[in-house]
Design a protein around this nucleic acid. Structure first.
Lengths: 169, 169
DNA sequence: TTGGAGTGTCAACAACACTGACATAAACTG
DNA sequence: CAGTTTATGTCAGTGTTGTTGACACTCCAA
């Protein structure tokens, strides 16, 4: 292997990473993400929905009764962009929007039964691919996979990610 | 909510993967990919270019003298979509298009000096993040990361990926 | 009461993907 | 050579998803 170590200033091992190694990682992310989204995209193509709808449905299903603002932070888009998506989902009866009890400005978003059904269909497809990849790679690889991905996130995204992970029970 | 998935029927290692574990992997991909593209996106936002230009520049720089058709296969977009991007890059003097010697129907694409400069700027930013993530995660995690990503790709993409990896030397 | 936060909406626009149709030149094939 | 296929370019139209900017409304808190 072309990995060399030298006297580290801290306690950590000092990793020398060639541009070539990094570029392979970059390309791996590019090609893998295409596969990652391919299955839900195929399903959504037949409906009037796209990837943005999938994301909204996923995170509403994940954290029911979440507010619009919370969803905005997770998705990292403008409220105008999210609103367009939410409006279609609400009028199509996939998402329910309830005025908050405490703070009546807030809207709490929950999947309807139809929304849960679609969410299930989409995530079944995505999980199937993820499961196959995990099985093929093995548990140690999966742990490494998760570790690198977490290190690659921006701080705020890592916070969102961790918060979701911890509220999972 | 600790539903177990079915076990593999063959003699492979028996991995029990809960829906929750898989969902965390899905969300990790989502958040990490945002970070992955954030730095080049920021740079490109100031110019008249977007992510599509970055991808074209990356793969032309990676495989100089590649043909349009080859690039189409790698990027997985329509020729109309790619052509729009290539046209701007060529007229802006970042990419050179030469008629093939053997087959004069083909156009061979190469980065100009200006193109290489931009490519360097963009990939420096992306590599910096990748390097930081790799260092933080450690070599075993990196190996696992790559293994899982490869397993997640569609077959054709994995072929493209491997071909690029092997021609790197 | 005033200021600000949370939300919804309108309009305009840009990036990037798609389909469909057509044109051109070169290469291949019978 | 004639006909077909391949590689590429281009035009026109459309859809999804993102952006700004502006404005209105409700409600909370100082």
């Amino acid at each position: 292997m072309d990995r060399r170590t030298s006297a580290p200033s801290t306690g950590e091992a000092l990793l020398f990473l060639t541009d070539e190694q990094l570029r392979q990682g970059i390309e791996a992310m590019f090609f893998a993400y295409r596969g990652f989204t391919a299955d839900p995209d195929r399903i959504l193509a037949d409906m009037a929905y796209g990837r943005a709808h999938h994301r909204a449905i996923h995170f509403i299903g994940r954290a029911p009764s979440t507010t619009v603002n919370n969803l905005l932070n997770i998705l990292g888009v403008t409220k105008q962009s999210l609103n367009r998506v939410l409006r279609t989902l609400i009028t199509d009866g996939l998402v329910e929007s309830r005025v908050g009890r405490m703070d009546k400005r807030e809207r709490h978003l929950t999947l309807t039964q139809a929304g849960r059904t679609l969410e299930q269909t989409l995530s079944d497809a995505q999980r199937a691919r993820m499961r196959a990849a995990y099985r093929e790679a093995g548990p140690e690889a999966v742990a490494g996979f998760r570790t690198v991905l977490e290190a690659m996130m921006d701080t705020e995204m890592r916070n969102s990610y961790t918060r979701l992970k911890d509220t999972a029970s």
